[in-house]
Design a protein around this nucleic acid. Structure first.
Lengths: 187, 187
DNA sequence: AAGTTATTTTTACAGTGTAAATTTACGTCT
DNA sequence: AGACGTAAATTTACACTGTAAAAATAACTT
């Protein structure tokens, strides 16, 4: 509205506006609120305005998930994170800071994993994990060590988002933090 | 139809029939196929026949998830599974054998965690995890060790269901199995 | 300036969840 | 046994969803 000189068309990059609106809805009201009509309504356009840009709802959600993987890659890539532990911390902190987005990124029935942007974005994030310095313990292949490490971190992220770690901690009476659990997982 | 002497009413336990139908659909076509009208249609009853039994779709899915937690508890409780590693194996194997159900059990936006049956069933399963013999390593509280263990196993289950572990293994050229990864996680 | 293309809206339709009223069948009680 | 109350299931209705197709609008190109 303010600066239609921005990029090009009728709306001034409706693509970005829709992703932005969807992301706000996602973190505010959860994945279940991501209906195509609700997104376009909140963005102030007609119900089918997203079609030329994203094809269908799956396309829009896939683009949003791709954005999430890109941000996750960025969160994991600061130069000071040379140790696996730091990467794990970044992974879990990203998930907890963006619970809706992180959940969407791994919701394979709401997203098309063959979507070009999503495929490259997720491959990029996974490659960053695979590039971690492999722990050279005896009798463990580096791939197995990597997979276990990823599983540990991913499990902590998922359980934390579902509130299950918090429930466990509360129930046990101790004063643990999730960061401490990540530290623990990397011992 | 055949033996209406079964239990009581018009249909002969429509409750069980609906859960059975829903579960078949779940493992055959995924969570996205679990529409209330599709379930009742496949069960041969009218669209609103589930209402007296489950209230709404969330109620039905919650009952199904509760059934899943009960089965998970059973899978983890054989007497020969005294070691944490065996419980972890049972957890991951249950998830891989019932990917749709396991996914539903942790899909908090499709399910009501305050649903009575679901709440008690999930609490039962989690209690079984909490009852594991805590590893008495120095400087680790038993709760932290437990949480890490659960996260490892849950992460392996989730990543395996999404096909991401298989992709990782394939991509690395090694001949790992998921059971080996579980073994590895418990070293 | 005119025409072409891309963007957006309008219109339409099949499918969904669920609330309300109605019909059906069961169990119970005198 | 027969009538009644109650639970189960269907019918009906409505608001909402995703998306295909046609129409309208605005931009860029030549």
């Amino acid at each position: 509205m303010k600066t239609p000189t921005k990029s090009s068309y009728h709306h001034g990059d409706l693509q970005k506006a829709l992703l932005y609106t969807a992301r706000l809805m996602l973190e505010k009201d959860g994945i279940a609120s991501l209906k195509l009509r609700a997104i376009t309504r909140n963005a102030g356009v007609s119900a089918t305005a997203a079609t030329p840009h994203f094809g269908n709802l799956t396309g829009l959600l896939s683009a949003l998930a791709a954005q999430g993987f890109d941000e996750l890659s960025e969160a994991m890539s600061p130069v000071y994170a040379k140790e696996p532990r730091d990467v794990g911390l970044a992974y879990v902190r990203f998930a907890i800071a963006n619970p809706g987005l992180f959940t969407l990124m791994f919701r394979s029935d709401a997203v098309d994993s063959d979507h070009p942007a999503l495929a490259t974005a997720s491959a990029g994030a996974f490659a960053r994990l695979a590039a971690l310095p492999a722990s050279d313990q005896p009798g463990i292949s580096p791939e197995a060590a990597m997979a276990c490490l990823w599983a540990k971190v991913h499990g902590l992220a998922v359980l934390a988002i579902d509130g299950l770690l918090a429930a466990l901690i509360r129930h046990s009476g101790t004063a643990l933090t999730i960061d401490q659990l990540v530290e623990e997982a990397f011992r």
